[in-house]
Every structure is written in C-alpha cells, then in structure tokens.
C-alpha cells in the first residue's frame, strides 16, 4: 500500500512528538523505521494505523485518509511493543477474534506459527510471559496478512532464538505474499538485512529515507596514517573519528567514486563499510 505522509505534526499537550514529517513509501516492500527512544516512532506509526488523529498535516494510505476510515483501517494492522494486546481469554480466543476482524486471515498459517513459537492454544494470554505475549502479537500480525502490517518493536520481548524465527518467518511470508511491512526497532543490526528501505527519524523529524543498500554504501570508515586520512576526508561529511596512536579512523558519509577509491588505496588507506547501527548512531547525533 502506498503511504504519503505530508507535513505531519502530532502534539500531546505541550509536547511535539512528530514535527513536520514528510515522506512517501511506494509500498509492497519491507521498510525499517529507525529512531532513538522518544524520537517519535510510535507516535508516527499510531497515526499511520489510525490509533491517533494528526494535529496537523496528513497521512494517506493508497490516497485515502486513515483516521476513522474503516475501508482503509481494515487493511492495516499494527502490533505494538506489548505484543498481543487482547489479554482477555486464551490464545485461541485471540486467534478467533483476529479471524473475525481480518479479511485475509490465514488460520493454518497462524497454527503453524503458534507451533513454531510453542504457544499453547489453551494458554491464557494474561498469564503468558512477556516473550510469549510478544510472540502471540507476531502470530496475529503475520497471519492477518494485512496489506499494511506494522510491527512496532513488537518482538523485543522475545528471546534471541524466537526473534530469529520471527525474522525468517517474516521474510518467507513476505516473499509468498508481498505486502507493505514496517518494522520499527532499535535492534538495528538484527533487522537491517531484512529491510529494503529505511526511514530514520530524530526528534520527530526526518533524518533520511533511503534504500538500505544505498545508505550503507554512503558510509565508509577511512583508516590509515592520521595526516593522510585527514587529507583524504577533508571534503566529506565526517560522522566521527577515532585515533589509536598514529593511526586514525574517520567515518565519512557521502558517495565515493571509483577515482576516489583508487586514490585512497594508493595513499595506503583502508576503506571499510560501516554497519547500519554505527551509521544510525552518527546520523542521529551520538550519545545524549
């Protein structure tokens, strides 16, 4: 589903959580929404999923406004960080409820996911561990096959093996049933290879929206003798530097052409890619 966010503002009283965001997602891809704690991720997603009404600006999904628009919201599911939020009754009841609510629900798939995450149908959701509640949310989110599926840190309560099972499930199901999926998380390294595009926000504003591979190709660590590193990196946006005796490593952001790469190698400098997580830390301003 196509998503158009224009000059979006969301305020809670005196607090501005989303501060003039504009971006467009063409849809049918796996997107990552990355941002630090309190950057406005959940606020933005809540408006996308029609849980909240925007203070100003607009959000359109397939050209339609979402707030109080049942034709559109039927096709949107957002699983929040608590995982399954319907805590009345058993896992089976939660599944029954989702089946009734979701037009594309796949019951067989839901059962196979529940087996995979070892969720017992008769277990009471309110008595489940945090990890199991998260897994329950993941089952509902995936088996709904909603054209716009949003996981807002919904898998953070899961342990490492379960999270990896989730990453595999999401990829496999996306390839069989392409749809728009938005993942928000701060475990960036774990999810970055799943993402076709990333949107990074900070303090309610857009930092960058780019294809993952393009973004990664813009970041480089240039390492070598300090004076040569400085000479080479002088024209670039410097994200950060580290020095160990005479050796300096400078992280730069920007496109490097073939000539520049050759120059670097001839100057005895090493060029290495930067992990998404490091790029993210520097693009969002380092420690606060």
């Amino acid at each position: 589903m196509r998503i158009d966010v224009e000059n979006l503002v969301l305020r809670y009283g005196d607090t501005t959580a989303v501060d003039g965001l504009t971006f467009n997602l063409a849809g049918d891809k796996i997107y990552g929404l990355l941002g630090r704690s309190g950057s406005g991720k959940t606020s933005l997603l809540s408006v996308l999923a029609a849980f909240r009404r925007e203070s100003a600006g607009s959000v359109r999904v397939n050209g339609q406004p979402v707030f109080e628009n049942a034709d559109v919201t039927r096709d949107i599911i957002m699983i929040r960080d608590g995982g399954e939020t319907v805590k009345i009754g058993t896992a089976e009841d939660a599944v029954y409820f989702a089946e009734w609510l979701r037009p594309n629900w796949d019951g067989d798939y839901a059962r196979s996911l529940m087996d995979r995450f070892e969720l017992r149908p008769k277990a009471k959701v309110s008595e489940m561990s945090k990890g199991q509640q998260s897994a329950m949310g993941v089952v509902i989110g995936l088996a709904s096959r909603a054209p716009l599926t949003i996981f807002d840190e919904s898998y953070l309560g899961m342990d490492v093996p379960s999270r990896y099972a989730f990453y595999e499930a999401i990829l496999a199901d996306y390839m069989l049933h392409p749809r728009t999926i938005i993942l928000s998380a701060h475990l960036i390294e774990e999810i970055s290879s799943l993402l076709e595009e990333v949107v990074i926000i900070d303090r309610g504003r857009l930092v960058v929206h780019e294809e993952t591979e393009t973004l990664l190709s813009r970041g480089r660590a240039v390492t070598g003798p300090a004076d040569r590193v400085d000479a080479f990196t002088s024209g670039f946006t410097v994200l950060g530097t580290r020095q160990l005796g005479p050796t300096k490593s400078t992280m730069v952001y920007g496109d490097l052409d073939q000539d520049q790469r050759r120059q670097a190698v001839e100057a005895g400098l090493e060029l290495e890619p930067i992990a998404m997580q490091d790029l993210f830390v520097h693009l969002t301003g380092g420690p606060r």
């Binding site: 796996i30 990453y167 595999e168 990829l171 496999a172 996306y174 390839m175 290879s193 799943l194 993402l195 076709e196 993952t212």
Partner: peptide, 8 residues
C-alpha cells in the same frame, strides 16, 4: 534471500 536471511 532465505539462505542469507536478506531482503529479496
């Protein structure tokens, strides 16, 4: 994509 767990 499945083997390397990456976006197709």
């Amino acid at each position: 994509a499945t083997y390397y767990r990456i976006n197709p």
